[in-house]
């Protein structure tokens, strides 16, 4: 019983830290009316806190690895919304799908080649 309470308390602490940074980001957006998403500001704030040593990875280890390893599942409701929003395309289904597929592959190949070229070059310089 003691153990359950201890684990529960430390998980609660992890949740509070993560939610706190998220809420901070949202607060900054609200105050400054910024175009950058609150979650991105929260992420940058947490990153700074980790670098400054104010927060240790151990303080948020379990909840953060849970959220990250199940990340794709949190997008399921966004995927389901497609069953309504497709109507906005009003008949251009084939063209829009074709465009998204072609364009995505172009971006992937180009980005991949550029990054791989520079990464390999700086790695071979070390060797």
């Amino acid at each position: 019983m003691r153990n359950v309470q201890k684990t529960g308390l430390s998980l609660l602490g992890e949740v509070i830290i993560i939610m706190g940074f998220y809420f901070f980001g949202e607060g900054v957006v609200w105050l400054l009316d910024s175009a950058v998403a609150g979650s991105v500001i929260g992420m940058l704030a947490l990153l700074s806190a980790l670098h400054l040593g104010w927060v240790k990875v151990d303080h948020i280890r379990y909840v953060s690895s849970f959220l990250l390893s199940f990340m794709p599942y949190f997008f399921i409701p966004a995927g389901v919304s497609v069953m309504v929003s497709y109507k906005l395309l009003a008949g251009h289904y084939v063209e829009v799908f074709a465009l998204i597929m072609l364009s995505t592959i172009v971006v992937m190949v180009l980005t991949g080649y550029v990054v791989q070229f520079f990464v390999n070059r700086s790695e071979s310089k070390d060797a």
Partner: peptide, 26 residues
């Protein structure tokens, strides 16, 4: 009817974005 519950799960994407700081730091 689905959306009213699904929205709660979508709201978790905010904290998930925040937590991306951890692998970045590592």
């Amino acid at each position: 009817d689905y959306k009213s519950g699904g929205d709660y799960i979508l709201k978790m994407l905010g904290p998930i974005t925040v937590v991306l700081a951890v692998p970045l730091y590592q």
